[in-house]
């Protein structure tokens, strides 16, 4: 049983934990804050934490000059498309491995995991060649396919660990209760699997959104998602702190919010069920 902790100790822990939390969060906080300053105030010396003129101008300028919405839309389509496609392929596979296991199930799972370890740079040129050959370069379809493939092992694994937690006895009970296979899947299995599928969707959407090797290397102008858009700010002529901050804030805000919902699934998903 938990014991009462002295108030003094709790205060000390609180102060320390908040100090460290704020320190770690500071770069993000600073970026968000700067995005609301004017360019001049953004590089003011000393740095301004308060007392600056709050402005939304940077956001307007970023959208106007670089057509931010197009990149955002590309990110949504690519991350969303690859995740949904991955789920569609993975659900039947994970289902059959969890409920109809065979002697090879474990080997197949581990082999799938091993494909995730393939260093991307090792196959960069072949993939580029294939993309050129099939006219996939700088298309959203091509990226959806690649991101689906690199995240497929994680999706299968996550779903597998979730499905395996559904006790077989419940499915047997449904059978004893007179449920047909269709009724069993519709009324018993699916409702029980939905939380797991939702978590898998969420985490893989985040992973796909942030993916920055293939999105940088396989896109140019038309299919570039936010990762590539932000990278274009690294060139010196694009360097304005406030605008960079506004662009960055817009790129990370949606995912930060989604991410906070997926903390628990993050551990399970990224450790392939080895830590829960």
């Amino acid at each position: 049983m938990a014991r009462a902790v002295t108030t003094r100790r709790k205060i000390a822990t609180t102060v320390l934990a908040w100090a460290i939390g704020l320190l770690i969060f500071f770069p993000i906080f600073w970026t968000i804050l700067t995005s609301f300053k004017t360019e001049a105030q953004a590089i003011n010396n000393p740095p301004l934490f308060w007392g600056f003129d709050f402005t939304l101008e940077n956001y307007a300028v970023v959208q106007e000059r670089s057509d931010y919405m197009r990149f955002l839309w590309n990110s949504v389509i690519i991350a969303g498309g690859s995740t949904i496609l991955g789920i569609l392929v993975a659900v039947p596979a994970a289902w059959s491995m969890a409920f109809v296991p065979s002697r090879r199930t474990k080997d197949i799972l581990l082999w799938m995991l091993s494909t995730k370890m393939l260093p991307a740079v090792g196959v960069l040129y072949p993939i580029s060649l294939i993309f050129v050959e099939f006219n996939l370069l700088d298309t959203r379809g091509g990226l959806i396919l690649v991101l689906m493939l690199i995240n497929l092992p994680i999706i299968v694994w996550m779903l597998y660990t979730y499905f395996r937690e559904i006790p077989a006895e419940i499915l047997e009970a449904a059978r004893m209760d007179g449920a047909t296979l269709k009724a069993e899947i519709l009324y018993v299995l699916t409702p029980m699997a939905i939380p797991g599928i939702a978590s898998t969707l969420l985490l893989n959407f985040i992973l796909a959104w942030n993916e920055a090797f293939w999105t940088l290397n396989l896109t140019a102008a038309s299919a570039a998602p936010l990762t590539a858009f932000i990278a274009s700010y690294s060139s010196p002529e694009g360097l304005f702190f406030a605008k960079l901050s506004a662009a960055s804030t817009m790129a990370i805000a949606p995912i930060l919010i989604l991410g906070w919902f997926s903390q628990k699934q993050l551990v399970r998903g990224l450790t392939f069920g080895a830590v829960k």
Partner: peptide, 17 residues
Amino acid sequence: PPAKRGLAMVFQSYALY
């Protein structure tokens, strides 16, 4: 198949939905 045998079963884990 089990669904058609007209039997009912109570499981060790209860297997409630």
